[in-house]
Amino acid sequence: MRLAGAGKVYHGMCKHLPERRNPTLQRRLIMQRIGIIDLGSNTVRLVVFDVERHFGRRLRPHEFREVLNEKTVAGLSAYVVDGVFTSAGIKRAVGALEGHLVSARNVGCKQMYVFATAVLRNCSNSKQAVREIERATNLSIDVITGEEEAHLGFVGASITQPLGDGLLIDIGGGSTELTRIEGGRDVANTSIPQGSVSSYARYVSLVFPTPDEREAIRKAFATQLGNAPQLGRNLQAYGVGGGVRAVAKMVGCMAGREKAVKQLAPESVASVLALLDRDPSQFAHLAVKAAPDRLHSLVPSAIILQECLAAVGAESLAMCKYGLREGYLLERVLS
């Protein structure tokens, strides 16, 4: 920290003012470049952050920024056969991680943290697969539970401002995380082992699901949602993650916008599915613009989101800027 004018020559003075530093602030503020890799069911994403680390208090939005954000659409859930993550899937995961490590080194990032979600959490050979990937990449992989995933999504979503009472929805490739919020705290975290990509893999034969296939996705998710703990009614909904964001982008594209909308109404989500019924060609062309890397998972995401909003009687959903990766940075790395 500099005093005003420190190091400058003033007219009428014979000497430079000495530069002064506060040693207490120097000890408490450290600049760090940190890489986070999210090993997901559909994508493997690297985000490199520059962080002003202030010891003794929580991270604020202006104290970290993205230096690099890149993803590989690895489709790892497609490599789970009869519950087993195959050797081909392990090879695919290793290749994606190695590519991201090169990118991280290119921007001078030496601190790397990797966490994995549903694809490695739910496979029957999880420990073996993780060991093989760790051995090949020399990385340590943190396989987080569904409840931890929901909690960390809440932590990230709360960075910009406290969230009011409601339900936070995160539709991933292999699971859907639901967080009940009361009094600014996450009081119940639920993970449903059905996501957009796993729904596609199990129920869809081509790219976009037929009406019968959409109904099969809906019934399967509704059954699991019905078995989840009571979530409440008439709640404000919040959204994080790629699945919800893809639907928000599609709604924006249908309205002639280039970006995702920040608020989603249940009627908007229903209009996405209605367009697929009414004009499959127009739907396909808009989907290519809105979510080219999520064509196969867009409709399952919309179905799952529609069911979640209906289950709690939400009248609107507000998109949150930050989510799981930022929550992991804040609570698992900086804490």
Results as ranks from 00 to 15, higher is better:
210 T>R: 12
59 L>F: 07
233 R>E: 12
285 H>V: 15
323 G>C: 07
12 G>S: 04
130 V>K: 10
189 N>S: 14
273 L>K: 04
45 R>V: 13
107 V>R: 05
27 R>M: 13
47 V>A: 00
178 L>A: 00
250 M>G: 05
217 I>A: 02
55 F>C: 12
274 A>Y: 01
104 A>G: 08
153 G>S: 13
259 K>F: 12
87 S>Q: 14
237 A>Q: 00
164 G>P: 04
257 R>T: 08
323 G>H: 07
248 A>E: 08
89 G>W: 05
141 I>Q: 04
92 R>C: 14
265 A>N: 08
71 K>Q: 11
62 H>K: 11
200 Y>K: 09
282 Q>A: 15
191 S>D: 02
207 V>R: 10
231 L>I: 02
156 G>F: 11
169 I>Q: 01
302 A>N: 11
85 F>H: 06
65 R>W: 10
315 E>I: 07
328 Y>L: 05
302 A>G: 09
163 L>I: 04
27 R>D: 14
186 D>T: 11
174 G>K: 06
201 A>M: 15
193 P>C: 06
216 A>H: 06
37 I>C: 10
40 G>R: 00
252 G>A: 02
170 D>I: 10
19 E>C: 11
297 S>G: 06
166 G>N: 02
175 S>E: 00
104 A>Q: 02
205 S>A: 14
132 E>L: 14
141 I>N: 01
261 V>M: 04
242 G>E: 04
205 S>D: 14
110 K>R: 14
211 P>T: 07
239 G>D: 05
190 T>K: 01
39 L>D: 03
301 S>Y: 01
97 L>A: 05
93 A>G: 10
13 M>C: 11
235 L>I: 02
10 Y>P: 03
54 H>W: 15
247 V>M: 09
335 S>Q: 12
143 V>A: 01
131 R>Y: 09
130 V>S: 08
16 H>V: 15
186 D>W: 13
281 S>W: 04
71 K>D: 05
102 V>R: 12
135 R>C: 06
138 N>L: 10
289 K>D: 13
106 N>S: 15
145 T>G: 03
98 E>K: 15
110 K>Y: 08
258 E>Y: 05
84 V>S: 04
156 G>D: 09
140 S>W: 03
114 V>Q: 07
231 L>W: 02
233 R>T: 12
327 G>W: 09
138 N>V: 06
319 M>C: 10
74 A>Q: 04
127 K>P: 01
304 I>Q: 05
266 P>W: 03
272 V>G: 02
63 E>N: 10
110 K>G: 12
190 T>M: 04
